[in-house]
């Protein structure tokens, strides 16, 4: 292997690079204003959603389409409490409430396997959406609510903190005993149970933990949207997108979902405002190409090419 590669693969180099990126990102609002910040904010949000999804579904193989429910719960927390409490507290409450919902849902439904779990969680989002809608129209005679205004810089820092927390959690779960338990559930749940793993507990707690970040990001992003209603808050796209971004990026490594989320959100920001349907069209096409030709996602593909590149170099020398 050549020297550039050994530097890139060096752990302390990677950590250093991460620290530099983080500092650069954190100080960004001091240099820039306006649109670029907003664009980054959306990227952060989708990375949070995608990585949270991967924390649970990526390893266990239970395909959750409940992200939009947890996200929406966060959004509504912000809409209901945003003007009563400091924003950091509101975000914390949003995270906790989402997590509790996830805990309940998990305890009730994680015995459903395969496709049933996916459609159940999907139905759950729609049920919550329509119940909220019905409640607002019939009980409160209104539709939607205003959300308290928060300065862009603050939103940015809060979202960045959530992002860092999500990535750290995902990283440490992956490297821990807990991560191994999750993986073995994904491989063969029955065998995992007979190996002494409390599969129900591991699944439910992980599901609840992953919902923390989704709820928190919903609570903070809501303040940017000014107005929300059940259709906006519980939009099923927030369930679909993380799944698709994770699959596009590849789930073998933590970097995969991150890159998938960044790539798609960037594309969305470029095309989304002017040609939203073109963006969604391209999204669909890329998705099908990815599922057909990139079984391990973009990162898997790059890895394969990278390895092949080195082999060629080795052969040349």
């Amino acid at each position: 292997m050549n020297s550039v590669a050994s530097i890139v693969l060096n752990r302390s180099f990677q950590l250093g690079l991460l620290a530099v990126i983080l500092i650069a990102l954190a100080t960004l609002p001091l240099h820039y204003q306006g649109y670029n910040i907003v664009r980054l904010l959306n990227i952060f949000m989708f990375v949070v959603l995608t990585v949270s999804w991967v924390i649970f579904s990526g390893s266990t193989g239970y395909m959750s389409l409940a992200s939009a429910a947890f996200f929406g719960v966060g959004i509504y927390t912000s809409a209901l409490l945003g003007d009563k409490l400091p924003i950091a507290v509101v975000v914390g409450i949003g995270a906790l409430v989402s997590s509790c919902v996830a805990f309940l849902v998990g305890a009730l439904t994680l015995r459903l396997r395969g496709i049933y779990f996916a459609i159940f969680t999907f139905g759950l989002v729609e049920l919550i959406k329509h119940l909220t809608l019905w409640w607002e129209i019939n009980m409160e005679d209104r539709r939607g609510r205003l959300v308290v205004y928060v300065e862009n810089d603050i939103i940015f820092w809060v979202m960045l903190s959530i992002l860092v927390a999500t990535l750290l959690t995902a990283y440490f779960i992956r490297r821990s005993k807990w991560g191994l338990a999750l993986q073995s559930i994904g491989e063969n749940e029955e065998a995992a149970a007979h190996m002494g793993i409390n599969v129900t507990l591991v699944k439910v707690i992980t599901f609840a933990v992953s919902a923390l970040f989704v709820g928190a990001s919903g609570a903070i992003i809501a303040t940017r949207w000014t107005y929300i209603d059940p259709g906006i808050a519980f939009n099923p796209l927030y369930s679909f997108m993380p799944v698709l971004m994770a699959i596009f990026g590849g789930m073998g490594r933590l970097l995969g979902p991150v890159i998938g989320a960044i790539a798609f959100t960037y594309l969305k920001e470029e095309l989304g405002t002017e040609f939203p349907e073109l963006y969604m069209l391209i999204f669909g096409i890329i998705l099908i190409v990815a599922i057909l030709y990139m079984p391990n996602g973009l990162v898997g593909l790059i890895q394969r090419l990278w390895i092949r590149g080195f082999r060629r170099q080795d052969a040349d020398t």
């Binding site: 005993k177 191994l180 338990a181 993986q183 073995s184 491989e187 063969n188 029955e190 065998a191 995992a192 007979h194 190996m195 002494g196 793993i197």
Partner: peptide, 26 residues
């Protein structure tokens, strides 16, 4: 402890990790 009539291994994990999980959690 038990084994299964139709093997239920953790297919994508190395053989050693399969065993390691047993000693880690069992």
């Amino acid at each position: 402890a038990r084994t299964f009539q139709s093997v239920k291994i953790f297919g994508n994990m190395p053989a050693l990790t399969n065993v390691y999980i047993g000693s880690l959690f069992g």
